[in-house]
Design a protein around this nucleic acid. Structure first.
Lengths: 256, 256
DNA sequence: CGTAAATTTGACATTCGTCAATCAGTGTGG
DNA sequence: CCACACTGATTGACGAATGTCAAATTTACG
């Protein structure tokens, strides 16, 4: 397979148009919402922001005064222990809300880092309560997003706590592919997959070397292909069964 | 140490009084809230419920039509893989809100089981939006609780993914002791600790046998005592350092 | 007292981590 | 164009942490 056979990576422009015309909202993965609500969202939006690949979106040490909605690109949430061991808590795709947990901070916090070049919409943290007050519906949506993200972490905890290496990898590949698919980041069966093996190891709670060997094994079994940053699932059923992780119908998510 | 030396276990009566007089609200760990809000909470409360030790509060298969606030006792959230491996996602103490994640369910769900006899206040799930609408402040509080619970799961994920057995046990002991302390379940330095080693193993992602050996080791080192369901921390600093898990000032939490 | 559940222990198997070296791709400067 | 450096991927050898099995012991409780 030659390089030209891959779809071109997606580089949406920085969002400079009104939220009403947001290209993300056109994706069926997101909940249709009244134009009143959209206008309210826009009035609370304080700007946009670009963070290049590898850059810090939110520092692990001090929470940012802003909240974000990821508009394009991939990122991840993580925590590090004092001796440097890092655990990735979850990956972020377009539409994901960033920084909500710190709103109610008690010192505990986590960092957010960009994997690819990213763009996001920003909101001032201290206007959050106003948003709830002005539009309870949007408050309800934010709760929804918070609850949904907790469920993602729940799944990751089951993975780290109770799955072996092969099961972890199988689960993660299916999970990321499915999420990319919903976000419109899959073309002709190939999903953008900008992660290196260190990312995967840190997300799964495995060492780099063991992650490599496990990936290799599943690849040799013909379960998936990974090439130049693009992922194709060859045996979805086998991976789902191995990872004991099955797709379920998902309702459209709110988009703030 | 004889049995009489231990404080008596706490068995608050089933809540039968108005929320305004709720004994939980008297605890400084909870946020003081206006009496308007308290009355609204009471008007949304649909009843109380008792689940005995070991009983199912929420089935893993189908979400319940109710939400709960735990009023007394200990419980835990969990998921099981299809071959029976179980992961405990977190422990629940009085004041914790139960079932919010399922509000936005997509099939994925988790179970909740009582460790001790428990009592809770119930709310009808389909009135949740009304609550947000009627009192945005309470919606904000619910979001707060959701975000705070996610942070607890984040910590557990770091534990399962990146801490070794001793560090996991140290972290869990400190974590549970501190939470019990805040909830007023510590007397004379002894905290209620109703868990068996299988609970601990399932929470930490370890096997039962290895959990036992690790507990034993830390106990022989004189870091803690565990006796007849009561826990005393003998070397808090050592446990915090070992677990790389330090207490931070916590603000009062909302109570729904 | 008798039974079941929970804890404890030892022996052993397996998974996973660590170390160290090599290989492949990419970009840089000459 | 090539030598070089750098990062990420790959592999093998080995050791340590953790899991599994089976049995003994203690505790809880009717």
């Amino acid at each position: 397979m030659k390089f030209e056979d891959y779809p071109a990576p997606s580089h949406p422009p920085r969002c400079a148009h009104p939220c009403e015309e947001c290209t993300l909202r056109a994706i069926p993965a997101f909940l249709a919402v009244g134009s009143d609500e959209v206008r309210t969202i826009q009035s609370f939006r304080s700007g946009t922001r670009v963070v290049e690949a590898g850059g810090v979106i939110v520092s692990e040490d001090r929470p940012s005064p802003q909240l974000f909605t990821l508009y394009s690109g991939w990122a991840f949430r993580y925590k590090t222990l004092s001796d440097g061991r890092r655990q990735i808590l979850g990956f972020l795709l377009p539409g994901d809300f960033i920084g909500l947990q710190d709103e109610f901070a008690d010192g505990h916090t986590h960092g957010v880092e960009a994997v690819t070049d990213t763009t996001m919409c920003s909101f001032e943290r201290d206007t959050l309560w106003n948003l709830f007050h002005a539009r309870p519906k949007l408050g309800y949506h934010i709760t929804w997003l918070a609850a949904r993200e907790e469920k993602l972490v729940d799944d990751n905890l089951v993975t780290a706590g109770r799955r072996n290496a092969s099961e972890r990898v199988a689960m993660l590949l299916m999970h990321l592919y499915r999420r990319a698919e919903r976000a419109g980041m899959v073309r002709d069966g190939w999903a953008e997959f900008p992660f290196n093996q260190q990312h995967i190891a840190d997300a799964l709670g495995l060492s780099l070397v063991h992650t490599n060997k496990t990936l290799r094994r599943l690849q040799r079994l013909g379960l998936y292909k990974l090439d130049s940053g693009w992922l194709r699932i060859l045996e979805p059923h086998a991976l789902e069964t191995l990872g004991d992780y099955f797709e379920r119908p998902m309702q459209p998510l709110p988009l703030i």
